[in-house]
């Protein structure tokens, strides 16, 4: 998204005030990020811990990369946290109760994810508002996750499976994040499908009138979301040696927050996947940095962290809105 902006400013000299605003806009999230980074690194005494602290945020990030594409089309998926929990439970049940080998069980989890996401897509294509449809499936999938194992967590996966939790000394979540990030960047910014996503999000009717297969776009995106949620669940099981039915409650809001802070419009048509990476970086660094700081500063407790992040979210959203109106 940065290239078009440069080009248009070059072609048409904007009034000086507008120009400096635009430059400021570019700087704001980066400035916040730098501040947050300073916070983090000034507090680290045992850097090896840092990686571990980050894993939950990386999981949020993986989901945020896919969510970006969904929000770009003007949709939303609230059921993503529930899908992670459900697919995790499916894998565990297939392995423990059905006696499947763990690899096959993981495949089953992916299939379950695709089905769950596909159902979301189907409901949206049928004409339900994505917000309500996925609100319903959010509760539904969570309920299923709790029901299939009677509400208990399932533990004791084979060691060979758990060993995959770290690859080359780094938690596998990082590798998955890289993969999903690259995949979504390619899909959203470098394929025909991605171009369709923007058109659908900007004006769904005009997209339909331009022969864009709108239903296909919806169906594919929600299904991908289910698949990725299942991957997060599988890696989560490796890491914790457990599938937990009430895992990832509230994750959907963190995911959406990353996308919004990155500057993707909640109403669709505008934004990008790298922006969500930036959003993730800002939120997670602040959260982690404030966590580290809280051991020093007595007033900086869990609650003030929440307040800071909430205020930040609104401020950045307002900033994005204003700067986009100007450009």
């Amino acid at each position: 998204m940065s290239r078009p902006r440069q080009e248009s400013t070059a072609a048409a000299p904007a009034p000086p005030g507008e120009r400096s605003n635009r430059r400021l806009f570019g700087l704001l999230p980066w400035g916040l990020l730098a501040l947050a980074l300073m916070l983090v690194f000034s507090q680290v005494r045992r850097p090896e811990l840092l990686v571990e602290v980050w894993v939950p945020w990386i999981e949020v990030g993986i989901l945020a990369f896919v969510m970006t594409a969904i929000i770009l089309t003007g949709g939303i998926d609230l059921s993503v946290g529930s899908m992670v929990a459900l697919t995790g439970m499916v894998q565990a049940i297939l392995w423990q109760d059905w006696g499947w080998p763990i690899e096959a069980a993981a495949g089953g989890a992916l299939l379950a994810g695709a089905l769950a996401g596909g159902l979301n897509g189907l409901l949206v294509v049928a004409g339900l508002s994505p917000l309500v449809a996925t609100l319903a499936t959010m509760a539904l999938y969570r309920g299923l996750a709790i029901t299939v194992a009677g509400g208990d967590r399932i533990v004791g996966f084979p060691q060979s499976f758990l060993d995959l939790g770290r690859l080359l000394g780094v938690p596998s979540q990082f590798w998955l994040a890289g993969l999903v990030f690259l995949g979504m960047v390619l899909l959203v910014h470098h394929t025909r499908f991605g171009r369709w996503c923007y058109a659908v999000g900007d004006n769904r009717q005009a997209a339909r009138f331009a022969a864009v297969p709108v239903n296909k776009v919806d169906g594919v995106l929600y299904t991908i979301n289910g698949l990725v949620a299942a991957s997060v669940a599988i890696l989560g099981a490796m890491r914790h040696d457990a599938s937990i039915p009430d895992a990832h409650i509230g994750t959907e809001l963190q995911v959406i927050a990353c996308v919004v802070v990155g500057g993707t419009l909640i109403t669709g048509g505008r934004g990008s996947v790298p922006r969500s990476l930036l959003g993730l970086a800002v939120i997670s660094h602040l959260d982690v940095g404030l966590q580290f700081l809280s051991s020093r500063l007595s007033w900086l407790t869990a609650e003030s962290r929440l307040i800071v992040i909430g205020i930040l979210l609104i401020l950045v959203a307002v900033w994005n809105q204003k700067s986009q109106k100007e450009s």
């Binding site: 959406i256 927050a257 909640i266 929440l306 909430g310 205020i311």
Partner: peptide, 15 residues
């Protein structure tokens, strides 16, 4: 702020 209420209340939910 000219913001969609989802975004605002997502923030105030945390605050």
């Amino acid at each position: 702020g000219g913001l969609h209420p989802i975004v605002v209340t997502l923030g105030t939910l945390t605050i």
